[in-house]
Design a protein around this nucleic acid. Structure first.
Lengths: 361, 361
DNA sequence: CTGAAAGCGCTAACAC
DNA sequence: GTGTTAGCGCTTTCAG
């Protein structure tokens, strides 16, 4: 179909073209199209509008942005868009962005420091109106130092070291709530499968684990804590290793649902029954939790709202309104079969425990 | 921290600033930074570089794009980023894009005609270098008419009516392969749960279903075909309805994995055993397929490669190279427990059937 | 070797 | 009411 270098077979119509066609200046075109209602006579207005329509003219965002100083784009940094935890965050953000005429640029960082940094630089170059960090930060934020933060708007979702508005939940309380539930189910020895030590979210959830133990006067046993990486594989291996080393436990507290599902697989393969031999609880309540069998009990967070709230925070900032340094959302425990022991006392099937704290927005 | 309208507390350093600081013109700054090695004396070069570093100068992509005529951005349109089918496509695309210095703008269309159209318009406005349609089109593409296609680069992933390079697999053959497998497992009555009738991918897969029947000389029975919507819910309801209406079937061919999982839930609840009473096969082989129990047999597609290939096609086009109108990728059947009947003949557990066609790229 | 000037497409003072 | 002018920040002829 094309022979030439295939670049621009044709030119995009410009305001100038519209101006020529309607016999006015580009200024007038701009004014008409932007509704700068400086009492432009209906006749002129109409002429311009017609010309624009005939030419299928659409203003170049590039030029507008350069001129006006904002781009109506925001960057979203996620470790991996394939991780279900980020789906509703991304949807919530994109939906809200779309509603406000903003465009979302997506970046997968794999939590690699260098890539994270490079993404921020790209967004700076692109003049993105804001960057949203999803997924929680790491304890060492050296890679994020010396970036032109004073020239950018940032919002974080989850715990982060960067001093910017943060959308999150009380992760400590969330895990503590799950622990309460396990104790209610008469569990005694709770194996904890964490994420990577350097992740801030991991520290938070670990605090929740310990707090849960404390409030039930159960001593902390380091042997019961195994590091994972928020993957199915890691959960599987953690349980495998725990069983191999002869550990005794009657519950698993996993810091995310993939880990929990991996744990369930390993338990099942080893002939242990869930929940009667071992109860399992995860975090995040991704859709997967309701699709495995037995259904996985999990602490549920309003991820969609996180995304939405992040966008709203960006808008507030852009409008010069003040943004709360921390917006904490409620969470609740979604109880399913993986933790509902017949032996235990309060065992209403389908029962759902909900507890909220610091509701906002 | 800020009192003023909070807009730009500070200015981004510009090439002009660098020029002033190093006592040269912006032209020279541009030349040095872009390596236009017009034998610029090392001394000058160094001065500019130092000034740029000190000012933390980074060229504005906006201005560069306006000037050069390309933006190094591409738009990705997916029905819903929460659908696992799109994750690896998105990752593959973003990974390849990142490697080439491109940025991906993400849009969720929910397959809503108006939104799809609006996304394209936004991308046109933004001067995106290309737009990638993922997920297959619909039979009525009226909403996509009269868009300035001659000024855009487009790549589709999956069957599409738009006359642009397409990355895909032979969906007919893929489903036919799954059907062969079911017949091998000695299934006789195969319930088919489809997607929406208007989706092109649905027509393709339906052809595969019929082709599968034909090659085994089994008459087509419309009663065995139930429309779904590629959701768990739809799969569940389809089986529910089928059983309620007294249909007899010993296998389910679902056109995607969510549907298949929903079907499995309904079957299990009704006391039917999988695969011995009813074998189940899905399409897409999303991670979920391996996490449910029994494991779901599914036709596997290289989604990551789709995304990657889409990006490569964009690059080829941008470089003036020719792009194949259709790039077909291979597929294979990932056999798991949901379809492996003890009763059947060839029943090696873990066995994996692979068949490829039209490998390319 | 380097700078002045033009211009990408648009908006916004500032005239007339 | 509407056009002229001056840029937004950059690249790129074209002179010197």
């Amino acid at each position: 179909m094309s022979d030439e270098p295939a670049r621009a077979r044709q030119q995009k119509p410009t305001a100038k073209a519209v101006a020529e066609r309607s016999g006015v200046s580009v200024t007038t075109v701009s004014r008409v199209l932007n509704g700068r209602a400086e009492v432009i006579p209906e006749e002129t207005r109409e002429r311009v509008l017609v010309a624009a329509r005939e030419l299928r003219y659409r203003p170049s965002s590039l030029a507008v942005s350069l001129r006006r100083g904002y781009t109506k784009t925001i960057g979203l940094l996620v470790p991996d868009i394939a991780d279900a935890y980020f789906h509703q965050i991304a949807r919530g953000l994109e939906d809200a962005a779309w509603a406000e005429g903003y465009t979302v640029m997506l970046f997968n960082t794999d939590r690699i420091a260098e890539k994270e940094r490079a993404c921020v630089e790209v967004l700076y170059d692109q003049n993105a109106d804001a960057v949203v960090f999803a997924g929680g930060g790491v304890d060492d934020d050296a890679h994020l130092r010396d970036l032109p933060w004073d020239l950018m708007h940032v919002v974080t979702v989850g715990p982060h070291k960067l001093p910017f508005p943060s959308i999150r939940v009380d992760d400590v309380g969330a895990v503590a709530l799950a622990m309460d539930h396990l104790f209610e189910q008469e569990c005694q020895h709770i194996l904890c499968i964490t994420g990577r030590e350097s992740w801030l979210i991991n520290s938070e959830r670990t605090k929740g684990y310990r707090q849960g133990l404390e409030s039930h006067s159960v001593p902390y046993d380091p042997a019961l804590v195994i590091n994972g990486s928020f993957t199915v594989q890691a959960g599987y291996e953690a349980v495998d290793r725990a069983l191999d080393s002869g550990l005794t436990f009657d519950a698993v507290m996993a810091f995310n649902d993939y880990t929990a599902v991996g744990a369930m697989q390993a338990l099942t393969e080893r002939g242990l029954r869930i929940p009667d031999d071992v109860a399992v609880v995860g975090c995040d309540d991704i859709p997967l939790a309701s699709l495995v069998s037995p259904g996985l009990t999990s602490v549920s967070f309003p991820q969609y709202d996180f995304g939405r709230a992040a966008m709203l925070a960006v808008l507030d900032h852009a409008a010069g309104r003040s943004v709360a340094p921390v917006t904490e959302f409620p969470y609740h425990l979604k109880v399913r079969e993986s933790s509902l022991r017949r032996a235990a006392g309060a065992c209403r099937s389908g029962h759902e425990h909900t507890e909220s704290r610091n509701k906002e927005e």
